[in-house]
Structure formats: structure tokens, C-alpha cells
């Protein structure tokens, strides 16, 4: 006995950008691809060990998947990259539902944007941070980079000390949102 109420559509997807824009893609693998309701005629050239590109309206677009993790993609096209999460109609609905009910995480994690060495930490644990305030200086590629806070709040833990070497995406410190 097969019983189910759920209807999954295997040919309709949404590529969503972090800014909330979304592209509805219908039948991506088939002959008649539709993006945002308009049919799309492209040729994808994807040979291993060579450039990947697609031909659209007689123009070539260089493509590269920079990162993919589960349904999250970073795709570079002609040198410009975009982030997408690929959603099905169901997960798309879930995303909308949850974004309404869930608030932003209280703790903002400040990570190292690149590998380097921490030259100086200008803030102390427990201090109040204003958005735009300089937090620490990271030296990478022989340049000193001032890392500023993108939120206001109270500074929690600092995970590194001066002169520590850090890798990209290491969590340097955490700020509790005000």
C-alpha cells in the first residue's frame, strides 16, 4: 500500500541568493530548461582538465564551481562569483517559514577572512563594541588589515592572542548582539 500526501516535484528548483533573490529553474537537466518562466537555450561545455564554459546567445561564459557543500554553491562566472542555495519547492517553503519564526543568532562570530598573523587585538573581553569599530589587526600578504566589527554588542570570548597565526575562517572572537 502506498500512501502519501506529499507531492515532490523533481523538476522544479529555486536557486536562492543570500540577499533573498531567487531563480526558479524548471527541468534543469532536460531539453526544455526554463529559468524564471522563460525558456533558456544554453550549451554547457564541461571537459575534465579544461575550462568549463557555457554558450548562451552565441557568447561564451567561463564557469567554475568554487565551492559546494550540500546544497550551497559558490559559482564563478566570467570572474564574478555568486552564492546560491539550491532549494526544492518544499525546502524553499521551509526556508520562508523558518526565517519568519527564527530570530538571528545572538552571537556573531568574527572569523579570519584570510590566513595570517594577529598583530594586535584592540579590544578586551567583556567590552562594548560599536559597529564599525576596529577589533584586531591581521597581517597577511605583507599588509596589515584592520578587521572591524559588523555588529554592535558585547565582546565575548577572544580565542587568540597577539602574534598567533590563524587560518582562514578561524573564529577569532565572538560578539553578543546588543
Amino acid at each position: 500500500m502506498v500512501r502519501h500526501n506529499g507531492k515532490t516535484q523533481k523538476d522544479k528548483f529555486y536557486a536562492c541568493t543570500p540577499k533573498g533573490k531567487n531563480y526558479e529553474v524548471v527541468n534543469p537537466l532536460g531539453e526544455k530548461v526554463k529559468v524564471k518562466g522563460k525558456s533558456l537555450s544554453v550549451t554547457i561545455v564541461n571537459e575534465p582538465g579544461n575550462f568549463t564554459y557555457l554558450i548562451y546567445k552565441k557568447k561564451k561564459y567561463q564557469l567554475e564551481i568554487l565551492e559546494k557543500n550540500q546544497n550551497k554553491y559558490t559559482v564563478m562566472i566570467n570572474g564574478v562569483w555568486y552564492n546560491f542555495s539550491i532549494e526544492t519547492p518544499i525546502s524553499y517553503k521551509r526556508m520562508k517559514t523558518l526565517s519568519k519564526t527564527q530570530v538571528l543568532s545572538r552571537v556573531e562570530k568574527i572569523t579570519a577572512p584570510m590566513p595570517g598573523k594577529i598583530l594586535d587585538i584592540m579590544v578586551e573581553e567583556g567590552s562594548q563594541i560599536k559597529e564599525g569599530e576596529a577589533l584586531f589587526i591581521l597581517e597577511a600578504m605583507k599588509m596589515q588589515n584592520e578587521i572591524v566589527s559588523n555588529v554592535s554588542g558585547k565582546l565575548g570570548k577572544i580565542n587568540f592572542r597577539q602574534n598567533d597565526n590563524v587560518m582562514k575562517d578561524d573564529i577569532i572572537l565572538e560578539i553578543e548582539r546588543a
Binding site: F13, T17, K21, V35, K57, L63, Y73, Y82, F84
Partner: peptide
């Protein structure tokens, strides 16, 4: 380019599916 994001979105979906 005008179509860059759309084409990238399509390509990501294509790869995922």
C-alpha cells in the same frame, strides 16, 4: 554582465540536480 547571475544560478542548479 546582465545575464551572469541568472546563468550562474542555472549552472549551480544543473550541477546540484
Amino acid at each position: 554582465g546582465q545575464d551572469d547571475e541568472m546563468l550562474a544560478a542555472f549552472f549551480a542548479t544543473y550541477d546540484f540536480v
